[in-house]
Design a protein around this nucleic acid. Structure first.
Lengths: 413, 413
DNA sequence: GGGCTTTGTTTATTTGCGGCACAAAGTCAG
DNA sequence: CTGACTTTGTGCCGCAAATAAACAAAGCCC
């Protein structure tokens, strides 16, 4: 009777209703792209009067703006066009990766308004040094944003590693261990802008925010709200999106697909175990199998693609083998999670043409629900429109959209 | 901008608030076991006046009942004791399995009030025949419940197979394919009780409801709200619970762990693929490896346990090997899903003592977050208190608890 | 220009919670 | 035993936010 109590959600009252409907209307305006009070009212089921009142408040706070009248050839009085404001609150996303840092500012409508990239090999550099560098870039982005009347509501930092509770537990590719990123980044940013109010800082795994970018900004995946996202880089990152929500797991470490097992007695992995997927389908393994220098990095992958395109047998068989192993593991993940689609990102995107058939074959063979083969487009390359930085910025944007009242109170009160 | 729109949730108004708070108070009473209006008020954050009004309504509908006064030695006026009603709405759970059918009625407090089991080999029998048999048992259970003033609010049917949208897509162990269980069961039940209002019928995978039973009624797992549940039977069933919610996947087929891959070139599985976990750690494989007749069923497992207890080397090595393979696959699932715990049910429960060390070793080696070894109790045998039928009944109970107003309206209006 | 339609606002009404006061029913100190 | 104190549960009033209905505004169409 007292077992495994679900924590009770907070009570509801008038204020809750208002907050909820405020967010509802804002998101309706967001999703419609262009709409009127009356349109929103019929869409969300509120009366026109209620929507009017809510929109008035959203206008006041600067979340939406009016854009003249609808001049459609329809009968009746034309409505006032509502759009999500192109100025005001925005999201700031930071991606810290092996050899670059990307910072971007996304407005409420979801468009990328500022983007700064700095190439620099972060391996072996002191974390605080890297974070300070990222903070400088972020500060510049905030400046550019201000020129467009955009004010970041928060920063979300994405990193390649296990991150939870504001700290990087480990990031093997960066060589980091137990780094309090949120604190360090906030500190560095505050030092650069001492006059300003500190920006709320949050952090996440890079694969997670990349998956969210795919969800929110990806092209050609309309209606896909549950998918497994894989990104082949130095390591293999993964993330799970279920019903439009990121699956973070009990401690925030979900999605680590790179160390699922292909062969329990396979080659030793740097994680200490044997036969991890990374040793078969990771970038280094892929290049090595094709007879290319495994440390060649991005150039190596382009070279591999070139050879595959030429029909080089060694390249094709290397990709095919990796694809099969990838398919074996991914089919397991699909059996566990039953997603709508599997998206391949990172280096897999370039190799998709040769990789996909092998992966798909294993999926069709091994996915037990028998649903895999029924329609063809369930294995896809990830869209180029979403990257980890944009997803990170999107996290902030979604927070504002989910509770505009909270943001407004924070700013005003 | 118009990408992957999340469906907007319904608007909120006064009625929504009332429904929400009604459920909140009811669940608070449920969780506390015994409480007073004032206690609930401070716990959920509402005023005593509001709670009074809500409780009055819950009393009227029969969800809670008063049980005299608190006679604690505390100063102040004693409060009226509130408990979840032991009569009124209840949950009816039906588990249809290979060689038995279990039906049980669970009251709002979560106690098992009626339980009927019928042993019968359902393999190869016409689905409609099996469902009719189950419906007869269910009708008897409804009768017994009525004698205790319990009225089922709905039936939830659990089956060993892929079930979604009210139909069993396939249940290899029963030999079923595309059976519309909900419709057939509802029809059979209605035929037995023509005078009564038809009971809402829903259905689910048996592993899913077993996992929910573990969540709601299991012992010794307080605070564990995210776990991977495995049940070794003829096949290997699995389910994922995340933050107290069952993870069903995009089509309802999540949790199929039995066909994750141990060795891509391993023995052929009846699913058509090679090297599935089931071929290594399934009941048949386990018995065969230990030199016991694989068709011996439950007796075979008891025999295996006896031999293991005696120290029979063949038995121990068979279990150890299966444990290792199980551990390999489960570690992959843990990396992907990052649960709090892994629960082993079914035949694994009896073999836990010899199985667990091997499984745990692989987990400690392969779980990449490095969290596995930090505390010891993350691999557990599932509790004996929860079975699939009870979990199924619990699903109905939770529905009522989640929206008592809806239930009351359905009954009254 | 008058009828029709649609939009957005205004006004009155409803409803559910918060705040406060108060009666009820106990404990505790002397 | 009695009065001070504490805690519980319940009226009563006010407020906020949504609904309902009426109305003015601003276009189409004949």
């Amino acid at each position: 009777m007292k077992n495994n109590l679900a924590p009770l959600e907070p009570k509801a009252d008038k204020a809750t209703v208002r907050r909820h409907n405020l967010s509802l209307v804002l998101r309706a305006v967001h999703d419609a792209g262009e709409s009127t009070r009356a349109g929103i009212a019929t869409h969300v089921g509120l009366t026109r009067a209620a929507v009017s009142s809510l929109v008035e408040q959203l206008l006041e706070y600067g979340f939406v703006s009016e854009w003249g009248k609808t001049s459609s050839g329809q009968a009746g009085r034309p409505g006032t066009v509502l759009k999500v404001s192109r100025s005001g609150p925005a999201g700031l996303g930071v991606e810290i990766n092996i050899d670059y840092v990307t910072v971007c500012v996304v407005d409420l409508a979801g468009t990328d308004r500022v983007r700064l990239v700095e190439h620099f090999d972060n391996r072996g550099v002191q974390p605080s040094e890297v974070l300070a560098r990222a903070a400088r870039l972020a500060a510049r982005a905030i400046g550019s944003a201000a020129e467009q009347d955009l004010v970041p509501a928060g920063v979300h930092v994405a990193l390649p590693g296990l991150v939870a509770g504001g700290t990087v537990r480990q990031a093997p590719n960066l060589g980091w261990q137990r780094v309090a990123v949120e604190g360090l980044f906030a500190q560095a940013l505050l030092a650069l802008r001492p006059a300003h109010r500190p920006l709320p800082v949050s952090s996440d795994n890079e694969a997670n925010t990349a998956a969210l970018a795919e969800l929110w900004y990806g092209a050609g995946t309309e209606g896909v709200r549950s998918f497994l996202y894989l990104t082949g880089e130095i390591g293999i990152g993964g993330a799970l999106v279920l019903g439009g929500e990121l699956l973070r797991g009990a401690h925030g470490f979900a999605g680590e697909i790179g160390h699922m097992v292909v062969d329990p007695d396979g080659p030793l992995c740097r994680c200490g175990a044997r036969g991890c997927l990374e040793q078969y389908a990771g970038q280094a393994a892929l290049l090595r199998a094709a007879g290319i220098d495994a440390d060649a990095g991005v150039q190596g992958v382009t070279e591999l693609e070139r050879r595959a395109r030429r029909g080089d047998p060694a390249a094709l068989s290397a990709i095919g083998r990796a694809g099969r192993q990838l398919g074996v593991v991914v089919s397991g993940a699909v059996n566990l999670f039953d997603p709508d689609a599997v998206m391949l990102g990172g280096v897999y995107r370039e190799l998709m043409d040769w990789l996909a058939p092998a992966v798909d074959r294993e999926l069709a063979l091994r996915v037990v629900s028998g649903l895999w083969s029924e329609d063809g487009k369930r294995l896809r390359a990830s869209s180029s429109l979403g990257d980890a930085a944009r997803g990170a910025a999107g996290v902030i944007v979604r927070e504002v959209l989910a509770d505009p009242a909270a943001y407004a109170e924070r700013e005003q009160g």
